[in-house]
Every structure is written in structure tokens, then in C-alpha cells.
Design a protein around this nucleic acid. Structure first.
Lengths: 271, 271
DNA sequence: GGGTATTTGTCCGTATGTATT
DNA sequence: AAATACATACGGACAAATACC
């Protein structure tokens, strides 16, 4: 039994793309042309294109045509390294609300911009309550930030703190401005809370509506997002901070380095 | 301007699913019933369902109907921890070709099975040559393994070694059997190569045909896969091993633990 | 095992709307 | 304003997979 026609057409086009006969950014024949090429109806040709769209090989632009998607040069975020590399502090990646992050981005030859934090007080629910070991409905502070790289939306980050910390005196947590020295050091100076360790959880899921809008992703969940949750603990093993970062999966990668690892030469970005 | 009808229908159904009116595994009304419900043509109803399919909210079974997808209890793989937890050795996760991995899986109350390694000699190309710092076309050994958990396909793993290691005497690398003590220790005993560190790179991409077949994923690239590349270095900073592991993104998560981190209570698996 | 009803999958044709050039 | 190209929506026909008697 043969493959359905729309799959054969998709397969033929896919082969033309992957062989390089159709390069990145090139326009495919129009639906009308494809219809004659493969002797199929326009709807069948469209079914083939839909398959290529969900495989992220092509994109359509109304009024223009169908195009082979452009490759994106991914950004690498280091979640952990114990090598003495670019950073003075111990915590890298998401931590410190931007200090280490900015250094890493510029090391990759790109320009990072952060939005002013938007601070909200909300009720802990679900993962937030679970990770911070709070009862559902307890008040928490959420500090939301948007990060742009080279002018493009790159990640959304929210850090949650139990309201208790503010009541104990860490009032800067509810102010909508940057903490230049980093939140970790601020909490140590203000309350004597020392960060003894942290735990990252890396997952992939479909973006919600807000995320799809901000990242300008197709609204049908084709492009997934990374969700990285970092829970920080004090010396008593109590969680006091949860950072949830969301990154579009089509333009981000993560790294972990342990022990003696040579520096990476700035590679020509294979994938 | 109003939303297109097929999106309104999809939105209405989505709301019914997320509100719990339609539970996991429940059957949706048939296309014919939906057609009457929303006073739309069958093709329009089908367009709405297609949208829900790419959002991974429902799945269709020919001859049966359309069903709300079941939630999968994800497996967590620890990429790195420096806490003294379940493992004697230092390297966790992908390392050791299964020693640490098996312990972690059973700690989550699941049963792990590994296939017998399939050993191939191939020519280094692309990422493999780049990571192992070999010229394109150099011979490398590839040890492929399939991992099942609770009888279900869970990950595909290939470890690459430069052929040079075999020529120096590490002949077990080309034998198609397990290395019970782990490859790291074997290389140290046989050749005196000590692992000084490693680097992980975590990416997400669409599965290729082999992967989609093995994992029984839909063949249109809706479900992404994690690709985790671990490059191991000796004391001279030379890479001597590259492990590429592929995991379906719908049933896997990753963890990194640094410093003092309390044990996680076996949570009821939120997501 | 066979036959039938049900349900989704594929493919066609047509008409009209919307976005872009 | 006109032409081009994709988006939405309708209708119909037959095939393939499954369940049930």
C-alpha cells in the first residue's frame, strides 16, 4: 500500500530542502504551481505543506508564499560550572538575576537587555507552593523580567520569594528596580540567609498564550519552550527562592560543565 | 474581526478539557456530533481538532474516535549533583553507561532494561568530529544502546570513542557486551586515561525517522526530543568520549543539583 | 472468521476572505 | 486598484481502521 499522496509530496519537498536544492529562506513553488507539479488538488498540496510546517521546515506568509525556514544561531546558557571561568561568583546561569548572565551573553558576542522588573504579590499555587514548601494560597513575591538579546525576545524569567522574607526586613524585594549586586548577596546582607545550594529542573512544554505572544511563536504550540526551575536553599535546607525561566526551544541550549573542561572555541554554530 | 470558526471550536473544546469537564482519556464527541453541535462542516470541525492535536491536548484513533491525551509521569535524569546522594561514584546521569542510571531509575520506583550494545565503526562527521577534535572521516567506535523503562522505550544512547583508543589496547570497546564496571574505570585501568571533567550540552529538536519509530512518536515532529551530548576530557584536556543521548521530551526531565540540596520527597508528579 | 456499522483519514472541487505586493 | 498567494469554509466521495455481533 502506497503512502498517501500528501505525504509523498511532503517527503519530496523535504528531500529537496535537506539536500540543499532549496536553501534557507528560499521560496517554494506556490500552491498553484505545486498543484500542477504533482498533479494533485490544491487542498492536497496544502496538506503536504502543513506537514512541513509542523516539522518546522517551512513557513507560510500570506500574500507572499511558502519559504524554507531560516536557521537560528542558538544561545548557550551555562547552568553550572565549577571551572574557574569567566565568573567570580560561584553561581552561574540563571542566578543572581542577571549578573552572570550578562557576562555570558556578551562573551558570545551578543547584546543583552533586561526589562525593569515587574513586581507582583500573588498567592502561591501549584509548583510554586510545592517548591517553596508553602501552603497553597500563601503570599509570595513574584519579580518578572523580560530579557532581549540583540533586540529579540529571548527569555522570560520570574523569581518567587516567600512574603515572609519581606516581613523579616528584605524590603527591596518588593521594589521594582534592579538589584545590582544580586539578590543572593542582598538576602545575605539583609537577613543573613546564606545560599547553601540549589536545584535545577529542566523541562520542555508548549508555550502558553502570553509566552507565544512575547516570543512571537506560532500560536499552535509547534515550537516548544524550555522551562528551567531553580530552587535555592539556605543552610537549614529551607527553600527561599524559586526562579522560573522560560526560553523558546528553537534558539536556546544549555550547558553543564564539571571538573576540568577546556574552553570552547567559538564554533561556527553547527546547530 | 472575529476569530475563525475552527479556532473558536478548538478554544471551546480546550476550555472543556482544561476545566476538567473532559478528563484524561475521555472521548470527545465524534466529528459528526461536533458538526451538529457547532453547526459547521466536518472539515471545519476537523481543522479544530488538528489544532488541538498539535497542542498535544487530544489524539485521534482511526475507527475509534478522538480522545483527551493521558498525562505521562515523567522520568527525571540527574545530569550532575555534588551532594552525597545515592551514588558512590562522582559522575551521575548518562555516565558510566548505565551504572548510575540504573540506580536512579529504580530509586524512582521504575524498572530499567538496557539492550545489548550494538557496536559500529564509523567515520567521524559533524558534531562527533568537532567534539572529539578529530578530522572529518577519522574512524570512531559507536556503541549504541536502547533503554526501556517499565517496558516502554525511553532513550537512545550512543557513545563514541576515537579508534585510537582501541589501537592503544582498549579492545573491549569494540566488543558488543556490557562493561559492568563502567567504561570510565575500564579506560583508566587499561590505558591510564583519567577522566578529569566533562561538558554537557542540552538541546531540543525534532526526532528523525528512526527515533520517531523507536519511541512510537507521531511522525510529524510534534513531540520534540532532548539531545544531551556529554563530552569527557582527560587530564590533558583532550576529549576521549562523546555520549549522545536522545529522550522524548514528553516523558523526560533533567535535574542539576549544586551544593547542599535536601532530598526530594517523591512528589505526586505535578508535571 | 465474516459481515456490518461506526469513526477517522484522504482527496477532490468550489467559493470567498484577507494579506501583501 | 489590480494581481497574487495563502486562509477559511463548505460540500461530497471513498478508503482504512476498529469494534461488535
Amino acid at each position: 500500500m502506497p503512502e498517501p499522496m500528501y505525504r509523498q509530496i511532503a517527503e519530496d519537498l523535504r528531500q529537496k530542502i535537506e539536500s540543499g536544492e532549496l536553501g534557507h529562506g528560499d521560496q517554494l513553488p506556490t500552491e498553484l504551481e505545486l498543484r500542477e507539479l504533482y498533479d494533485a488538488s490544491r487542498n492536497t498540496v496544502r496538506d503536504a505543506i502543513k506537514l512541513l510546517i509542523t516539522r518546522r521546515l517551512v513557513e507560510t506568509r500570506p500574500g507572499q508564499g511558502t519559504f524554507v525556514v531560516q536557521k537560528i544561531n542558538p544561545l548557550v546558557t551555562t547552568l553550572f560550572t565549577d571551572s574557574a571561568t569567566l565568573l567570580a561568583g560561584k553561581e552561574t546561569g540563571l542566578g543572581g538575576e542577571g549578573t552572570a548572565y550578562a557576562a555570558e551573553v556578551s562573551a558570545q558576542g551578543r547584546k543583552a537587555e533586561d526589562s525593569v522588573p515587574r513586581v507582583e504579590i500573588q498567592q502561591a499555587a501549584g509548583v510554586i507552593a510545592e517548591q517553596l514548601k508553602l501552603a497553597e494560597g500563601s503570599p509570595v513575591i513574584g519579580r518578572h523580567q523580560q530579557r532581549l538579546i540583540d533586540g529579540l525576545p529571548w527569555s522570560l524569567q520570574t523569581t518567587f520569594y516567600p512574603m515572609r522574607l519581606v516581613e523579616l526586613g528584605a524590603v527591596r524585594l518588593i521594589q521594582a528596580d534592579d538589584m545590582p549586586t544580586g539578590a543572593v548577596r542582598y538576602l545575605e546582607e539583609a537577613l543573613g540567609i546564606k545560599q547553601a545550594g540549589w536545584r535545577d529542573r529542566i523541562t520542555v512544554r508548549a508555550p502558553d498564550v502570553n509566552e507565544a505572544t512575547f516570543f512571537r511563536l506560532p500560536d499552535d504550540g509547534r515550537v516548544a519552550v524550555f522551562e528551567v526551575r531553580r530552587t535555592a536553599f539556605d543552610r537549614q535546607g529551607q527553600p527561599f527562592r524559586l526562579t522560573v525561566s522560560v526560553y523558546p526551544a528553537d534558539r536556546n541550549q544549555f550547558a553543564v560543565k564539571v571538573g576540568q573542561v577546556p574552553d570552547e572555541v567559538a564554533a561556527p554554530a553547527r546547530d
